[in-house]
Computed example of a mutant assay.
Amino acid sequence: MRRVHSRERSERVAWWTTGPGTGELRAEPLRDPGAGEVLVRTLWTGISRGTETLVLRGEVPASERDRMRAPFQEGAFPFPVKYGYLTVGVVEGGPLDGRTVFSLAPHQSRSVLPADAVTPVPAGVPARRAVLAGAVETAVNVLWDAAPRLGDRVTVVGAGMIGCSIARLAAGIPGVEVELVDVDRAKAPMAAALGAAFASPDDATPDRDIVIEASASPAGLALALRLAATDSDVVVASWFGSRPVPLELGADFHSRRLTLRSSQVGAVASARRERRTMRQRLALALELLADPAFDVLLSGPSPYTALPDVAAALAAGTDTGLCHTIDWSAA
């Protein structure tokens, strides 16, 4: 492994969001790891267009600011805040010396973390792809909540990073037919690469056994209710931030006996909570990332020095990538 001199270790570069769509790279002191801690040199971070875009825009509602805190966040919402939770790096020193690991660290060149806060990346998973571990872990939890059965017809509304991850995992269940619905027809090739059919909202197939809403759009949630078959489940994977979301609970909602339920990654799905820990769920997600099909979800890469431009584009909605990857190798 690359040996690092103590002078190099004495500081790090970190990305701070300081206003809507704006931020800065700051040099910060870096302490030595203590007992039970590891020093991790960052290789890649990923930026989700979902939660992190809300942070970049300053749209985290006051009522959710405590629950929305990332594990190693500094600062406070709305600004200034050092945020992020999709990080892959290499441990320098200690019992995990040289291991590539995933962590929930923010966007910064080095981190000192508790040893139990890093999860080794399996040898068959490239470091850049491993930044998707958070998305795939969410997809695992959503499917534990949705519980598709052999031969089910499953629709995922919203071809974002989470929706695409759910579609890929669901497509791997024998006999399950998956349709990915999105307003952007240009995502049809991506759906095909993930093993799912594609449909626009106007062409989506009705009478589905399970509908999973991952669009973060009120219109997407309304569509999910319309596509669900009688006595079926609609699982809401989106988090809508501070926006009010109207629901169509009149008409035939009751006569079709639909079940509307939430899924949230902050706790293991109730069906597995007594038998799986969050750490085991994350380890499973990393194992599933040996599948190269997930590479279609990655955009960029951009060097860490481009973060001001990347953040501005994400906040403005002009960066359409699902998970923009940031290369920290030169930091």
Rank of each mutant, 00 (worst) to 15 (best):
M1H: 13
V13N: 13
T17L: 14
T17W: 12
T17A: 15
G23C: 10
R26W: 10
D32C: 08
T45G: 04
G46Q: 01
S48M: 08
R49K: 11
L54E: 10
L54Q: 14
V55M: 04
V55K: 07
V55P: 01
E59G: 05
A62R: 11
R65G: 00
R67N: 11
P71I: 00
P78H: 06
F79H: 07
V81K: 02
K82L: 14
Y85D: 00
G93N: 05
R99N: 08
S103P: 04
S103H: 05
A105W: 03
P106N: 09
V112G: 06
V112C: 14
L113T: 01
P114C: 11
P122W: 05
G124R: 13
G124L: 10
R128W: 08
V131K: 04
L132N: 02
V140W: 07
A146H: 09
A147S: 13
G151N: 03
D152N: 14
D152Q: 03
R153L: 12
R153S: 04
V156R: 00
A159N: 08
G163C: 06
S165K: 00
G172V: 02
V176G: 07
V181C: 02
V183C: 06
A188K: 07
M190L: 15
M190P: 00
A192K: 11
A197P: 02
F198M: 10
F198Y: 04
A199P: 01
S200M: 15
D203I: 09
R208Y: 02
I212W: 01
I212R: 01
E213P: 03
A214Y: 00
A214C: 10
A222N: 11
L225N: 01
L227G: 01
L227M: 07
V236W: 03
V245I: 09
L247G: 03
R256D: 02
L258D: 02
L258H: 07
L258F: 08
L258Q: 09
R261S: 10
A271D: 15
E274S: 15
T277P: 03
T277D: 00
T277S: 15
R279I: 07
A283R: 14
A283W: 08
A285D: 05
D295M: 05
V296H: 00
L298N: 06
L298F: 09
S302N: 11
T305H: 10
D309E: 15
A312L: 09
T320K: 13
